[in-house]
Design a protein around this nucleic acid. Structure first.
Length: 268
DNA sequence: ACGTCCTCCTGTTCGC
DNA sequence: TGCGAACAGGAGGACG
């Protein structure tokens, strides 16, 4: 589900709700969500206060008084804020119970999401975050060009590779290719340095605009009832008609992911 | 080392 | 209408 703008939206919403709260207990209904020993996860975090929530790429990092854990929502993960007691939903797998009686519940229909304890002081330098590339905002043209230039993979596949740049997922990869006027299947090694520079600029612009809109709401995603608005600005993803030439949008699979583009306007 | 495919899951949509 | 196949904001591991 969520890409960088959606995760950023979730982060902000969660910060407003849980900063300063202390975890009284944790209930884990599906152990696989927690990487490593689920009992240790509970034991370690119990009694700790939420100090901050960070975000790196599509990862959220919950910073507590002593420890920290990362949370990746993958395709369908969400956090439900519970202020009034309600029955547990069958897709709520991890429940954080705070000392003020409120709860934070991790909801994930496909159970793809993961949580994992990390070192509070150096999580950026250890797995799973260590291998992530820079977000477009911090990316340096030379570094990105080096990686793209040496690959014959489709440019869209490279945009989805979190080791090159972090935060872009399927929706925004499609949108970025459209804005670039590039065919998503264009091999990376066909791009000039100038073109890669433009790619980074376009990525920044699209992610920034999406964050401003509160992310994209497709299917059921929302950040605790806060729906994003970027879906109204999508130009190709899940669209039928090209906003530029009014021709039909082509949909095909690239690297196993649904890829939408305009054959006429994206050929460079 | 690199590219491709499979896998983890469940719910919804698509096509015959 | 019914029913199985395909697909869905992701990423890590196996394999050739």
């Amino acid at each position: 589900m969520p890409e960088l703008p959606e995760v950023q939206t979730v982060r902000q919403t969660l910060k407003n709700f849980i900063l300063g709260k202390t975890i009284k207990d944790i209930e884990i209904y599906h152990q696989n969500i927690v990487v490593g020993d689920a009992d240790e996860f509970t034991r370690r975090l119990k009694g700790q206060t939420i100090i901050d929530i960070d975000r790196v790429g599509k990862y959220l990092i919950f910073i507590l008084s002593k420890d920290a854990f990362v949370s990746h929502l993958r395709m369908e993960g969400k956090y439900n804020i519970i202020e009034e007691p309600t029955p547990i939903n069958k897709h709520e797998h991890v429940v954080f119970i705070f000392d003020d009686g409120t709860q934070l519940r991790y909801h994930d229909t496909r159970k793809f999401g993961r949580m994992e304890l990390v070192d509070k002081d150096r999580y950026r330098d250890e797995l799973p975050l260590a291998k992530l590339g820079p977000e477009p905002q911090e990316a340096r043209v030379g570094d990105v060009y080096d990686k793209i230039h040496r690959s014959s993979l489709a440019i869209k596949t490279l945009l989805l590779d979190q080791h090159i740049m972090a935060g872009i997922g399927n929706i925004y990869a499609n949108e970025i290719c459209f804005e670039m006027g590039i065919n998503p299947k264009m091999p990376g090694n066909k791009l000039s340095k100038k073109r890669v520079e433009q790619l980074i600029e376009v990525s920044k612009e699209i992610l920034t605009e999406a964050i401003k809109q509160g992310g994209t709401t497709i299917h059921s995603f929302d950040a605790n009832g806060v729906s994003g608005l970027f879906q109204t600005k999508l130009k190709v993803h899940t669209q039928k008609e090209c906003p530029t030439c009014k021709g039909a949008i082509t949909k095909e699979m690239v690297n196993g992911r649904g890829t939408y583009y305009c054959k006429k306007c994206q050929r460079r």
